[in-house]
Amino acid sequence: MKKLESIEDKLIPAVFSGILILTWYFTVESGYIKEFTLPSPIGVIKALFDILPDLRVHIAVTLQEALAGFFISIALSIILAILMDNIEIARKAVYPLLIVSQTVPIIALAPLFVMWFGFGIIPKIIVVILVCFFPIVVSLLEGLSSVDRDLLNLMKSMGASRLQIFKMVKFPASMISFFSGLRIAATYSIMGAVIGEWLGGRAGLGLYMLRVKNSYAYDKMFATILIIVVLSMTVFKTISLIQYLSMPWFREMKEE
């Protein structure tokens, strides 16, 4: 029964996507929409194979920016979440700012970063950090503060120090929530890097997309988007895999 359901879970989205792609294909083939405004799915696939050799460099650059930003975000988030969890004043002071930071349109700020930090890798990493940081810090903070008070009292009654309580109870207890934040941030990281490049740079998928867009090569642009989707999904799946491997108890709990 369970197996059947999981096949169904995979089949339904696959069929639905297939229908969408077919609709796209026939609309373009029939000439209802001109090929130069919207390339056909087959055109996109063809373009993908054409540009793939050239794209390798750009993919490497984008991945590098995204991962650098992602890891810096993780480090910053852990530090900040721990501070906010332990010091009430820090939480009160920083939390509203965190939320406000998410309402600022990054697309408007990014050109400023280019002006301040040049066309190199740094402004891109900053954009990635700005988009990744928030989901990680919030999920970790939520995880840390959701621990059962009675459990904390029990640890205290057994003479555990604050550091021990953190290491043995609070941090492991926040892992599930932490990983869900990480998964969201991981997909954002690629997108963040692309936005950063779009607004000025020397290499990267965003820059490449800007170039092909300006030369009206939409098939190549769509092919690049496809690559961005694949990259994002790969990072997402990698995080899920790390969670699967690092939390054996959670894995077995889900399997039961």
């Binding site: 009675d150 029990l154 057994m158 003479g159 492991p172 108890w249 959670f250």
Partner: peptide, 18 residues
């Protein structure tokens, strides 16, 4: 603290530890 501990209605076992 650190001399006697107690047990609750809730088992308060850590789910991630064997």
């Amino acid at each position: 603290t650190g001399r006697v501990s107690y047990m609750y209605q809730k088992d308060l076992l850590l789910p991630w530890k064997k």
